[in-house]
């Protein structure tokens, strides 16, 4: 089986500062991986680099054997769902926010039905009537789950989750973990949550932009 993503000796500089240095790792379909480390160690930068938001100084990022380049970046983005800590819903109400990506050409043919919206919301313990609520009136935790629901509706191959459970209570968090533990989903996440880390197969520890340690199933 070939890796879904592979970083090969990747270094990144942004505004004359090295933010990632010589990073190499691979992630296979179905893997659940966690990036951990202190603030500023480069966890989120790895996610952003994969999405082409930072220019590579050296090395190569592969997605399904295709190197990240201006030509492939759109394909990589369309196969990946990135959900951040403070997600932007980008629409006035929840229904519009969930349907936002389906306005874009790449997803236009796959617009979900109302029942699918409700089903995905319920999996994340959100009530169906939240669909009509205004985006500005919903809480931070609800916003995080709506962004996750939007990602799930897109049916992506890879989920990049950046501290997405920071505003969730224990029950909602477990619901999110249950959904993303699905063996069909590949997840690369940034979190300090020990419950989620316990469910993951790989833990990457970062220190000052370097990969300091890789733990697999509890082994170093």
């Amino acid at each position: 089986m070939s890796p879904l993503i592979r970083f090969d000796q990747v270094s990144v500089t942004a505004r004359n500062k090295t933010i990632l240095s010589n990073i190499s790792f691979a992630l296979f379909p179905g893997d659940k991986a966690v990036l951990c480390g202190k603030s500023g160690s480069g966890k989120s930068s790895i996610l952003r680099t994969l999405l082409g938001l930072y220019s590579l100084k050296s090395g190569t990022v592969y997605f399904q054997k295709i190197p990240l380049s201006p030509l492939s970046v759109q394909t990589i983005r369309s196969c990946t769902a990135y959900i951040g800590q403070e997600p932007m819903l980008g629409a006035d109400n929840v229904r519009e926010a969930l349907l936002l990506p389906f306005q874009f050409k790449t997803h236009r043919e796959h617009r979900p039905k109302e029942a699918q919206l409700i089903e995905v919301l319920q999996r994340l313990q959100l009530p169906a009537d939240i669909l009509n609520q205004e985006s500005r009136s919903i809480s931070g935790g609800e916003k995080q789950r709506i962004a996750l629901a939007r990602g799930l509706l897109l049916g992506k191959k890879l989920y990049l989750l950046d501290e997405v459970t920071s505003a969730l209570d224990a029950e909602s968090k477990q619901a999110v973990f249950d959904v993303f533990s699905d063996p069909r989903l590949t997840v690369l996440s940034v979190t300090h949550d020990t419950d989620w880390m316990a469910r993951c197969s790989i833990i990457f520890e970062l220190e000052a932009g370097r990969l300091a340690q890789v733990k697999r199933n509890g082994n170093t």
Binding site: S78, T80, Y82, G84, G90, P101, K105, T106, H107
Partner: peptide, 16 residues
Amino acid sequence: ENEYATFLMLGATRWE
């Protein structure tokens, strides 16, 4: 900037 990046991450082209 974050909203623009979100649109890109949701599959929008630059123009979209």
